[in-house]
């Protein structure tokens, strides 16, 4: 990726752009990310998912359920993305897939399909404003997630807590381009890239 000045990107900690840390970026490494699909109106599906993954799939749109090991993100009326940064119930794929198939659900392994970053800092909402979502805490409540476009690229954002930090997930093949856009927009406020840490 020689054409991109920031291609080494999220692997290289450092400070870029203007002085200061207007935004702070760090890779949130994904150990496993599984896509659970199924019909919420079938109680045996919800129960089976809880059994297999230790989490109650959030039913309200764009909400997040978090356990110590993983986050379950609502990404569609029949679709959830379970993301873990380390050890978690996201093991024994084949058996768990079969167990979900048996209750009319499905399981897909998408662990390598996305790159995730933690985006924080005083200017985070400004830098993310290439996306039409409202990143103010009144527009994007803690414990919620949303998908939208960052420039022209689909991205999934999660605000786990009250503070101004977001997880941002993009498809792996687009990640380099999106990273470049984050650096371009962030440079005027000062970008600090810190060491990768497990997704939380």
């Amino acid at each position: 990726m020689a054409e991109h000045p920031h291609a080494a990107g999220w692997k290289q900690p450092g400070k870029y752009g203007a002085t200061g840390s207007g935004i702070v970026l760090a890779e949130a490494t994904i150990a496993n990310a599984w896509n659970v699909q199924g019909n919420v109106t079938r109680p045996e599906f919800i129960a089976r998912a809880r059994e297999l993954f230790g989490v109650s799939l959030p039913v309200a749109p764009n909400t997040v359920a978090m356990t110590d090991a993983l986050s379950a993100l609502w990404i569609g009326p029949r679709s959830w993305l379970l993301v873990a940064g380390g050890e978690s119930p996201l093991v024994n794929f084949g058996a768990k897939r079969d167990a979900l198939n048996a209750v009319g659900g499905a399981l897909f392994d998408l662990s390598a399909s996305r790159v995730a970053w933690t985006v924080s800092g005083p200017h985070v909402a400004t830098v993310l404003a290439k996306c039409p979502l409202d990143f103010h805490v009144r527009g994007f409540a803690p414990g919620t997630c949303a998908q939208s476009l960052f420039g022209h690229v689909n991205a999934l954002w999660v605000r786990p807590q009250e503070d101004d930090a977001f997880q941002m997930l993009v498809a792996r093949s687009f990640a380099c381009d999106v990273w470049y856009a984050l650096m371009e927009s962030g440079a005027q406020y000062g970008v600090e890239v810190t060491l990768p840490a497990p997704y939380r």
């Binding site: 896509n35 699909q37 199924g38 029949r78 009319g104 659900g105 499905a106 897909f108 392994d109 998408l110 662990s111 390598a112 399909s113 996305r114 498809a171 792996r172 093949s173």
Partner: peptide, 10 residues
């Protein structure tokens, strides 16, 4: 009863 997922990126 069919569920699909794009795995191009995976």
């Amino acid at each position: 009863e069919v569920y699909i997922a794009s795995v191009t990126e995976q």
